[in-house]
Structure formats: C-alpha cells, structure tokens
Design a protein around this nucleic acid. Structure first.
Length: 309
RNA sequence: CGCGGGGUAGAGCAGCUGGUAGCUCGUCGGGCUCAUAACCCGGAGGUCAGGGGUUCAAAUCCCUUCCCCGCAA
C-alpha cells in the first residue's frame, strides 16, 4: 500500500520501521520541525526524521497543519491509500483526515477508550493499572475518539514508562502491519468507543514529577516509574533538587511526618509517607549522575529526621 | 554560541585564598570475638580528564579540547 507516515518521538520509530519492513511503499514521512532539544546544542531532528532519512524516505516538517494549503496540496500529491499516525504531536484537521481512501489510522498506547490523550503510558502506570496496551484505530476529529480496529495487551508489573514505551512501540508496529491488510480487504470494521468508559491522559509535564509525600508509598513508587525517563520523580533535600529514579516500598508508616527521612543505609534511603514508607534506591542531585543509595551515602551525608519537600 | 554544576585511588566525595593529596565504602593482611556486613591495627592502590600557559612551585590561577550532569526548551 502507499502509506504516508506521521510521527515524531522514539515511540513512533518502530511503527515506521515495521511499515517499511512489511514492504509498504512509504511515500512520505511527516514529523515535527527540528527543535532545540538538548542542552547547549542546536537544532535536533526528531527520532522519526532520523529514521526516515536512514530509510531514504522524503521528510516533511510543516510548522502547522491547519489552514496550510501548501501542505495539504503536498499530501494530496503523495496520494496515500492510508495515513498512519503514531504520536505525531498535533491534531489533524478534517481536511487531512478525508484525503486517504482508507482513512487515517492511529497507533495509540492504551486500551481505548481509557487513557485518551498524550500521556497514556505514564497515566496508566500512575493509576496502578495492571495492564495496558495498544489500540489501532481510525482517527476522528475528537481526541483519540475514533473507531477501534484492533488491540494488543501487556502487563505493567513493575515496568517503567521507558520500558513500557519501548515495548508498546514494538507492539504497535507489529499490530499495525497486521491490521493494515485486514483494513484494505475490508475484513474488519471499526468498533465504536464507549464514551462512558473514556478517561483522559493529559501530557506529562515537569510538575508531574514532584513527589507529594502525603500520598501513599505505593502511589509514589508508581510515580517514580512513570516519570522515567522524563522528568524524573523529584523532591527537595535542604533546598536542593533530589531526584529518585528507583524506589521500593515498605509497609511501616511510623509516627513521623510524611517526607521524613527515617533511615539511610546501603539498602536505601527510607522516607515516611502518609501510608507506608518509600525506600529510595537510586537517586540523583543536580550536576551529578544517578547513583545507588549506597554510592550516594559514601560521599554525601543524609540527615535523619530531615523532612523532604 | 540559552543558564549552570562537574570530571581527584575500584566506588561516592573533600581539598581548589598555589608548596608533590585526604575522607567514607570497598579491597588485601593481621587482631579481637561463640559470632558478624560489627570493632581495632596495618597495607596496597591516584599521569588530580587531555593539551598549552603563568610561577621557584599548580589538583589548586589563566586559555583550550574532550566527556558527564542539573535547569531551561
């Protein structure tokens, strides 16, 4: 099939690869414009652009999609049978959605209708879901509201958002190439989403990483996993940023105020919470690398009974 | 050239108002102990990221290269 692919971050790359590997003719790749991504450096291409260039596919990076006649014309010229979208980063207007005969198909990282939106993976972890997955769906004008075509599941367990993203990305590419032929032959039809079950997963922001020790240790541990690789779960120790990259929980709540450091050893830095205690296993302070609690304590002292936050 | 922190023994850090380097952990040897990831004694281990400069003398001051990281995006 003649496919136009739209995607931006790392998550979208395996889908692009899967499409190419499945032998589809990818006439164009649309991705976000290059932007300043790293410190000090200059413009950086998106992961999808890098892969597209590697595959020798023409790349388009329109600054905007809406009311962009030139882009619309280009898209029509590419004459895709279907447009595949994976974490592109912008809402597609109706005039784009109607271009491909087979429609626009989205690879979404949740089991819709739950977790519509830009942060489905992290939100599923935060909420303590046992499983999540991939939904391949038609795109509609609403946010992730289109009819569903296929799904695949995986368990969350103690995975981090980074691990889940990688896993789901691969899963998404696989499921997509399995779904496309069925779509082309008309063997499957979209299943309408039950809006009453829908939840919204807003994009993760820096602030989502701030730890609130008034929550339970279990919730905070989920937050730690959900904030990997970005922005990282953090609190403050003596006014300085203190990130926790890996943690476990203990049942003991104790009598200390939430956020109090109650113990520090090679096994971890124990912090009391509203319910249970959090044991920080891997931490990081500004300008330094992530280190195990044991390594951290070799050269840094931690004041017991100090309250973090 | 977005702002900033940092590269010192295997690991994590101190020293940085210049005079050949120190702490904690680990490691090796010994001692104590019923016993120990405990304690005591002793030892090994460092071109102080690379290059250049200032100086009688630089980890410490100046210039530069490489690498790591926090913030901001």
């Amino acid at each position: 099939m003649n496919v136009v692919f739209m995607g931006t971050p790392k998550f979208a790359v395996p889908t692009l690869e899967a499409l190419a590997q499945a032998g589809h003719e990818i006439s164009g790749v649309i991705t976000q414009p290059d932007a300043m991504r790293d410190r000090g450096k200059k413009l950086q291409p998106t992961p999808v652009k890098e892969k597209a260039v590697e595959l020798g596919i023409p790349v388009y990076q329109p600054a905007k999609i809406k009311n962009n006649e030139e882009f619309l014309a280009t898209l029509k010229e590419l004459a895709p049978d279907v447009i595949v979208v994976a974490a592109y980063g912008k809402i597609l207007p109706a005039e784009v959605l109607i271009i491909p005969p087979l429609g626009c198909v989205n690879v979404h990282a949740s089991l819709l209708p739950k977790y519509r939106g830009a942060g489905p993976i992290q939100r599923a972890i935060l909420e303590g879901e046992e499983k999540t997955g991939i939904t391949i769906m038609y795109m509609a004008e609403g946010l992730d509201t289109g009819d569903m075509l296929s799904k695949a599941e995986t368990s969350i367990e103690k995975k981090t958002a980074e691990e889940l993203t990688e896993e789901l990305a691969l899963m998404g590419g696989k499921l997509l190439v399995e779904t496309l032929p069925l779509l082309e032959s008309g063997e499957i039809q979209g299943e309408v989403q039950d809006d009453s079950l829908a939840t919204y997963a807003p994009m993760i922001s820096k602030k989502d990483g701030q730890i609130d020790f008034e929550k339970s240790a279990v919730e905070i541990e989920r937050q730690v996993r959900a904030m990997i690789p970005w922005p990282g779960a953090y609190t403050y120790y003596k006014g300085e940023l203190f990130k926790i990259w890996e943690a476990s929980t203990m049942d003991e709540t104790g009598n200390n105020a939430p956020g109090t450091v109650t113990a520090a050893s090679g096994d971890g830095i124990v912090i009391s919470t509203k319910e249970g205690s959090l044991v920080a296993k891997t931490v990081q302070i500004p300008g330094k690398k992530r280190v195990s609690a044991a390594d951290y304590l070799k050269g840094n002292s931690i004041e017991l009974l100090r309250v973090l936050g």
